[in-house]
Amino acid sequence: MQGLPILRLAAATIVLTVITSVLMLIPDWNGEQASTAAADIDRLLDVAIVLSSFVFWIVMVPLFYAIYRWRAKPGDEGDGEPIHGNTRLEIIWTVIPTVIVLGLAGYSWVVLDDIEASEPGAIPITVTGQQFAWSFTYPEQNVQADELHVVEDRQVEVTMRALDVLHSFWVPEWRIKRDAVPGAPGASIDDDFVVTPDRAGEFSLVCTELCGLGHTTMRAPVVVHETRAEFDRWISEQDPIPSDQPEPAGSPAS
């Protein structure tokens, strides 16, 4: 492969990677951040974007260079160089991607542990999905509502319940999603997760698992209060959990 401008190709790859990375890091792809998990996940996404830009250009630069440089002249019926392979190159492009993806896996694992870490004093809430509405019970406060209210900077420990089919809990600004699965108490369903909202305001809970005719409109308001006092005031205005209501399968994780 004499005459291959390796340095210039490498430079082009790096320059294009830098430009693409910078451009791709400008938009807030995932939108507003409103939980402690959001910043972690978005940072992971940024790392993935930079590495992806590199992977993209390390494929595209050689591809377009080859098409530019070795395009057959009109009327040229000859063959290319009979090169069958290059063991060193093949080892390189096996090992380097392995290292990259294992690095991404390791970092993802760290982020996963971070966003799933429990904090003391979390507020337990049971979220119940039912065609086509959400309901929320606050076992500690003995209150039930059809809006999700939480407190800024206070972790909530959510337990998912489904009464009919699968539903899925998603607040995009929190970056957190989990399916609600119908099941008997104690079934091997991982039904609880934690999230710590860190921005007061109003958001929307979106059902993201196809659940039938009303799936499109199955949403619920989410309110993050600035203070615990505001939250308590709202709690005091809600109805208590009806005593005759069958406890949704399984008691909330405590």
């Binding site: 492969m1 080859a66 070795w70 040229d76 063959d79 093949e90 492009w93 991607p97």
Partner: peptide
Amino acid sequence: AVPTGIKIFSWLGTLFEAKI
């Protein structure tokens, strides 16, 4: 992604010194 990457890079290698 690794075996998939091998395939993509090998196609690129096929294009080098070729008559496309």
